[in-house]
């Protein structure tokens, strides 16, 4: 690595991440990803680094929302960034673990929790 590690970037998510809300979240994510892509491709652009996905403001989350989060993580990873979720409320973490999505995110990689 010749470039110095970048300051972690962050993406703050909020609102309804259930099947009822994902349709509204998707455009935001797509816009954000497009922004990231532009930054990478522009001259002297930013090298990819860590991307923190902040879940503090997420009100509801279900399996459908987990799926979208996982997809977001994959896309970010494909661009060369390292995704992680931060500021995860305990109840959301439990949902992510129970539904088996934790392996998509660097934090909370402890595997499934026993229930």
């Amino acid at each position: 690595m010749t470039l110095p590690p970048q300051k972690p970037r962050s993406l703050v998510l909020d609102g309804d991440w259930s099947v009822a809300g994902v349709a509204r979240q998707l455009p935001l994510i797509m816009a954000y990803l497009a922004g990231l892509r532009t930054e990478l491709s522009s001259d002297g652009g930013v090298a990819a680094g860590r991307l923190a996905i902040v879940l503090e403001g997420v009100e509801t989350l279900d399996a459908c929302g987990c799926q979208l989060l996982a997809l977001l993580a994959c896309q970010v990873l494909n661009m060369g960034w390292e995704p992680s979720i931060v500021a995860v409320p305990a109840n959301l973490q439990e949902i992510i673990d129970t539904f088996g999505f934790s392996h998509y995110f660097r934090s909370g990689s402890s595997g499934g929790s026993d229930r």
Partner: peptide, 11 residues
């Protein structure tokens, strides 16, 4: 991702 329908289950 452009063609992704977030309400569908791809999991």
């Amino acid at each position: 991702i452009e063609e992704f329908d977030p309400e569908e289950c791809h999991t």
